[in-house]
Nucleic acid binder design. Structure first.
Lengths: 210, 210
DNA sequence: GGATAGTGGATAGTGATGCTATCCACTAGG
DNA sequence: CCTAGTGGATAGCATCACTATCCACTATCC
C-alpha cells in the first residue's frame, strides 16, 4: 500500500498523512527504495484511531502521540496505559492551581475518593481535574451542585466495573490495549452525549408540562 | 469598582478583561465620564463564570458568548437554555458526517434514544455527538464497547432526574439559569473526573493482584 | 495646580496549534 | 521515455486566545 492509497482509504488528506508521519503519530512505512515505502493494514487502522482520538475524543496531536507511545510500549502494564490515556485527555491545566481555594478543593477531592475507598495514585491527573471543578463550583457559589458528587461516584463506580471487565474479557494484550484507549476516550464521548440527551428528556418532562 | 479592581479581584489580567469586554462576554460598565466606567459585583461574578467555562468546561470564547447570550435572554425558556448550553459545549463538529457509516450511526443513536422512550429534539447536537462516537467505535472494530451503552443510558437517566431536580429546587429564575449552565458544564467535568478515578481504582483492583 | 497613575478605546502583535502548499530529486509503471 | 506519484524538506496559512502598545484624557493626591 502506497501513501496515496493510505490517504484515500482513510479519508485523511495526503499532506495530513505526511504531517502525522513527521509528528511521529504514524510509524514510517517499510522503505522499498529511496523514494518508495510500503504501508500495511496496521497503518490504516492506526490512522483511523488517530482521527477518532482527535475528532471524537478532542485530543491534541501531542496527546495522541503520548497515548500512542504508551500503546506501542510493550513493556508498559495495562494499568499504566490507563493512566497515560487519562493524562492525555486531560491536556495541560488551564486553571490556576496555586490559590488556597484550589488547595482546599484538591483536599476535598482526595477526601471524596478516600471516603469511597478508591485506591488511586495520589498524583492522578483526574484528582486535579476534580479539584478544578470543585474549586470553580465553590467560587461561583454553586456548592449545592456538589450534592451530585455521591450520585456521580456511585454511578461511575458501577460503570467502571463493567468497562474494565469488558476490556479484560478480550483475549490478547493488543486488543486490550486498544480497548483501554477507545474505552477511555470514545466511551467518554458516548457517556457525555447520553448525559446530555437524558438531561434534555428529563428537563422537557419536568419543566414543560408544569 | 474600576476596571483594574475588576482585574485584581478576579485574577484575570487587565488586557484580558478588556478583551472580554470587546468580545461581548462581559457587559460594559456604567459610563461615568469620557474615560471612566463603573463596574459592579455582577461583573465580577460574570467574569468568574467566564473563566470557569473556559478553564474547566473547555468552552471556546465563542461558546461562552453563546451561553451568556442565552443566560441574559430573559424570554428564553429554561429548557431552551439547556439546549444552547449543550450546543456550546459541543463546539463545531470535526468528524465527517457525510459518510454512510455516520448516517447509520446517527440512525442507531436515534434508535437508542427512542428505545429508552426519551423525548428529545431530533436535531439535538448531542444526537450527532453520540453518532460521532458510535461511528468511530464501529470503524475501529470496537463495537463490543457498545455493550456499555445501556449502562450509560440507565445511569445518566437516573442522574438527570437528580440534576434537573436540583436546579428546579432553586427558587428564582436567575439562580436556575446559572444552575443550568454550571450544572451542564462543570457537572460534566466532575462526572468525567470521577469516571476516570473509578476506572483507575477498578483497574488497579482487577489487574494488579491477578 | 502640577505630577502621576490609571482609564476607555483602538489597533497591532504574539505564540501555539493543526494543518496545507510547494518544491525537489527521484523512480515505478505503462 | 514519459508521466504520475513518492519521500523528504521547508514554508505558508488560518484560527484562536490572548497580550502589548499607544492615545488623549481624567481622577486623585500632594
Amino acid at each position: 500500500m502506497r501513501i496515496s492509497e493510505l490517504s484515500r482509504g482513510s479519508g485523511v488528506s495526503l499532506p495530513t498523512v505526511k504531517y502525522y508521519l513527521r509528528e511521529g503519530l504514524l510509524p514510517p512505512g517499510r522503505a522499498m527504495g529511496r523514494n518508495q515505502a510500503e504501508y500495511g493494514d496496521a497503518h490504516l487502522r492506526r490512522l483511523r484511531l488517530i482521527r477518532a482520538l482527535i475528532d471524537v475524543g478532542n485530543l491534541s496531536v501531542a496527546g495522541v502521540r503520548q497515548v500512542l507511545q504508551a500503546v506501542d510500549d510493550a513493556e508498559l502494564p495495562g494499568h499504566d496505559l490507563l493512566g497515560t490515556a487519562h493524562e492525555a485527555v486531560a491536556g495541560s491545566p488551564r486553571a490556576d492551581r496555586s490559590t488556597s481555594g484550589w488547595q482546599a478543593a484538591r483536599a476535598e477531592a482526595a477526601r471524596i475518593v478516600a471516603d469511597r475507598g478508591w485506591l488511586v495514585h495520589e498524583r492522578a491527573a483526574a484528582l486535579d481535574q476534580l479539584a478544578d471543578a470543585i474549586a470553580a463550583l465553590r467560587e461561583l457559589g454553586q456548592e449545592d451542585m456538589l450534592a451530585m458528587v455521591d450520585g456521580y461516584a456511585e454511578a461511575t463506580e458501577r460503570l467502571a466495573v463493567q468497562e474494565v471487565g469488558l476490556v479484560l474479557a478480550r483475549g490478547d494484550r493488543a486488543a486490550m490495549v486498544e480497548g483501554v484507549v477507545t474505552g477511555t476516550v470514545l466511551g467518554e464521548a458516548v457517556l457525555t452525549a447520553l448525559r446530555r440527551l437524558a438531561q434534555e428528556h428529563t428537563s422537557a418532562g419536568l419543566t414543560e408540562p408544569g
